[in-house]
């Protein structure tokens, strides 16, 4: 009987183990993902236009042919966009190609000026995926970055360098007292990985 009670108590304890809340960094990463899905859905739905949609598309195409400045780069196209999801869609297009040095340099400049944190995360993810960011300068804005999701994305990028050259930057960053615990954990992990290598 006592044994049975003790099992029941254990089951209760298991059920009542406390739960942790998802960090703001994770929530922001989800929001960035959501924004991209919405954009994709919007694109798909506008790819199946009705007859008046087709007419409007033809008119828009003619206008575009008349006014489009041929040779406009993706950078100019990006600068002309105001909506965050449009900007993200442009960056998404870059993910399909091999990033050139000038693409990386441009993305680095955008990182410094772009106000939308979701876009900054998106750019950093792109740089990380392509493993093309040879320049450690890309990490410089990390020190000024205040959004945990973006900090995490910078750290993901930093991880791929696996180099002692970024150690100073990481150590300085680690001293900040306003970091989210998940960010603190990540920077500590990367520092220890570099030390162990």
């Amino acid at each position: 009987m006592k044994e049975q009670e003790s099992y029941e108590e254990l089951v209760e304890q298991l059920k009542q183990l406390p739960k942790k809340e998802v960090s703001s960094a994770v929530n922001q990463r989800f929001e960035a993902m959501e924004e991209l899905w919405n954009k994709e859905t919007h694109r798909k739905s506008s790819n199946s236009p009705k007859w008046y949609g087709i007419a409007a598309s033809i008119a828009a195409l003619i206008a575009l042919l008349l006014w489009w400045p041929f040779g406009t780069s993706i950078q100019d196209h990006y600068s002309a966009m105001e909506d965050a999801s449009d900007k993200m869609a442009i960056i998404h297009e870059l993910s399909a190609k091999t990033l050139q040095d000038n693409d990386v340099a441009w993305l680095g400049d955008v990182l410094k000026t772009e106000e939308n944190p979701n876009i900054r995360v998106f750019i950093l993810d792109l740089l990380e995926i392509h493993e093309s960011a040879e320049t450690h300068d890309l990490l410089n804005p990390l020190q000024e970055e205040n959004v945990p999701a973006v900090q995490m994305a910078y750290l993901n990028l930093a991880r791929q360098f696996e180099s002692e050259e970024i150690m100073d930057q990481l150590v300085v960053f680690q001293r900040r007292t306003d970091l989210d615990p998940s960010v603190t954990e990540k920077v500590a992990t990367i520092i220890s990985e570099i030390n162990n290598n």
């Binding site: 998802v22 960090s23 993902m33």
Partner: peptide, 17 residues
């Protein structure tokens, strides 16, 4: 690991989508 748990959570929602 909070970091890994966050990454895995994102992967779940990517896969759901």
């Amino acid at each position: 690991s909070e970091e890994d748990a966050g990454d895995l959570l994102m992967t779940v929602f990517e896969r759901i989508h």
